[in-house]
Every structure is written in structure tokens, then in C-alpha cells.
């Protein structure tokens, strides 16, 4: 994110006017653990660093380390919850948040973080997740049933246009709930959700994909048969990597396993840790699946009243 001079100025003033140098240092150490204000400012250790000098230096260092947004996250947090038992009224926060939103980032109350405004841009890391850092994601995996047979049976044009329609259905369902399609290969892909109510968002996306695919099969599909998919939704801790090839993780392996082993065509399988985090109105829609290994899995499929 480009940090403007005005934003630097506002943040420096916010620090200077709300806390002493000791508190500022304590705060910055949460992001840069061995931060030494004397070393950074060049003041001798026997002279107290003036407030304004310390704030200037800290904000500059934070910006240079690309930690500006997490630092403002901290300022918002101490403005609400305090620090070391003491409440701080951090001035200029509203202006800072407004300035950041002009740069295309919104504050997400649920995760207490800034996240890129999806109306402006959609990047794989929501503009804020950092390489190799651990985060808890909810994943949605989708696989086209009988891909090999379909590819053999239909012309490349029909396959390409059908799969591209499917991808559009998935992308719309995922991105409108601030998820990201991290990977899309010929026969399916993986979407990730991190912000807001990520489990609800992933579950709703999966349900919408089932419904949209149902309509697509009836009204638009060029195949002589139904286009069918299997989906799974699971959540867990995972290191963020910009390159999908570097995601070697048990969570990713497990979601692939429940998708291929326990999921019937045109249904979604949910792991128990997702279902337990869902609003009850949604969780009630899913039925438990019998598994051999005591995994608690749940399924959703579209059912119809008898005609």
C-alpha cells in the first residue's frame, strides 16, 4: 500500500498526542520485536528521546517495513481495549481510517484488520496477508466429476466454454463474499476465505454454486448430460504463500480427501470444525455423513418436493 505523506503526518500526531515514548516503543515491539528507539533515532541512551522525534522515527520505520496497516490495526485496538490495563484515546483515528479507505482498504471488525476493498481490487492476499505467516483460513475445494470422460467425449470448444462458465459461477459466488479463488486447474479449483465470517461465507458460496449449477444445467449447459461437481469445505491453520504450488499443508490434503472420498456428485461436504462455527440457521441445512473413520462430516444437496 502506498502510504501518503498526509497519512504519515496524521499517524505521527496520533502517537505524539496519545502516549509517551515508552508506550510507543512497547507498541512497535509487537510488530518489530527487537526495536530499539535509541539506536533508530541516534539519541544517546542517557537522554530521553523527545516524543515527536520518537513518533516520527517509529512511523517511518513502520512504513519502511511495510507494517503500516498492522500498526494502525494496533492503534485501533488500543483505542478500543487499551494497553497494559490502561485506556488510551487515540486522536485522529477516524481521519486515518478514512485516509486508508481512500487508498482502497476497509477495516474488518471481525478480524480487527484492514483488508483491501473488493470493489477496488482483489488480490490473493487481500492486500494484507504476509508470506509464510500462519493464518486460519476456510477453504472450498471443487472438482468436476468425470472430467477425463467429458474431455474425451466433447470437443475442446464445448469443454472449454462449459468449464469457463463453471469457473465464472464459482468466481462470482466466492468473490462476492470476499473469498479468493487461489487456484483453478482444468477440472476444478480451490478458494480461500479469511475475512469476516469466513465459515458462513464459504458455506454460502458452496450452496450458491450448487444452486447456480442446477440452473445452468437446465438452461444453458451445452453438454448432453449434467455438469456435475463435488465440493468440500474445511478450515484450519495454514501458512500463506503467494505461489499456490508452495502450499504443502495437511489442511489442503484433508480437504482433497473429504472431497474425493465422501462427497457425492452435486453435493458439498463440510468438516465438523466448519459446521460448528456456522450460524445455526445454516448448520441445520446439513445432514451428517456416515464415515468409517469417525470423522464428523456433513453434507448439503439440493432436494425437491415431490411433484
Amino acid at each position: 500500500m502506498q502510504v501518503s505523506g498526509w497519512l504519515i503526518h496524521l499517524t505521527t500526531r496520533a502517537l505524539t498526542e496519545s502516549m509517551d515514548v515508552r508506550t510507543m516503543t512497547h507498541l512497535v515491539k509487537r510488530l518489530i520485536p527487537h526495536y530499539d528507539i535509541y539506536e533508530r533515532t541516534g539519541f544517546p541512551r542517557n537522554i530521553p528521546v523527545p516524543n515527536k522525534n520518537a513518533a516520527n522515527q517509529i512511523v517511518r520505520d513502520i512504513k519502511n517495513n511495510e507494517l503500516f496497516l498492522p500498526f494502525v490495526d494496533l492503534l485501533i485496538d488500543i483505542g478500543e481495549s487499551g494497553i497494559m490495563g490502561r485506556k488510551y484515546r487515540v486522536p485522529h483515528l477516524r481521519e486515518i481510517v478514512a485516509e486508508i479507505s481512500k487508498a482502497g482498504f476497509l477495516y474488518d471488525d471481525e478480524s480487527k484488520m484492514f483488508v483491501e476493498d473488493p470493489r477496488i481490487r482483489k488480490t490473493k492476499n487481500w492486500g494484507v496477508l504476509r508470506e509464510n505467516e500462519e493464518y486460519i483460513f476456510t477453504f472450498l475445494r471443487l472438482d468436476i466429476v468425470g472430467n477425463t470422460d467429458l474431455v474425451r467425449k466433447y470437443s475442446p470448444y464445448i469443454i472449454q466454454s462449459t468449464y469457463s462458465d463453471l469457473r465464472a459461477i464459482v468466481q462470482i459466488a466466492v468473490e462476492k463474499r470476499n473469498g479468493r479463488l487461489w487456484n483453478w486447474e482444468g477440472d476444478g479449483g480451490l478458494a480461500a476465505f479469511y475475512f469476516s465470517r469466513k465459515n458462513n461465507a464459504a458455506a454460502l458460496s458452496a450452496m450458491e454454486i450448487i444452486h447456480e449449477l442446477f440452473m445452468y444445467n437446465l438452461l444453458k449447459c451445452r453438454l448432453d448430460e449434467l455438469l456435475r461437481v463435488r465440493m468440500a469445505v474445511h478450515s484450519g491453520q495454514c501458512q500463506f504463500r503467494h505461489s499456490f504450488e508452495n502450499f504443502k499443508n495437511d489442511i489442503i490434503k484433508y480437504i482433497a480427501e473429504i472431497e474425493s472420498n465422501y462427497t457425492k456428485p452435486n453435493t458439498v461436504t463440510f468438516s465438523s470444525n466448519v459446521v460448528h462455527m456456522l450460524d445455526s440457521i445454516l448448520a441445520e441445512e446439513f445432514e451428517p455423513i456416515d464415515t468409517d473413520d469417525n470423522s464428523f462430516l456433513y453434507s448439503y444437496k439440493l432436494k425437491w418436493e415431490e411433484g
Binding site: 458462513n200 454460502l204 440457521i281 439440493l302
Partner: peptide, 15 residues
């Protein structure tokens, strides 16, 4: 189609 989808997606809409 719009009305059909409204009924189809009623639960999603409510949530």
C-alpha cells in the same frame, strides 16, 4: 427465472 431463483435461494437470502 428471477422468481424461481428467489424461491430457490430463500435460505441464502435470509442469512
Amino acid at each position: 427465472i428471477t422468481c424461481f431463483k428467489l424461491i430457490l435461494n430463500r435460505k441464502l437470502i435470509c442469512v
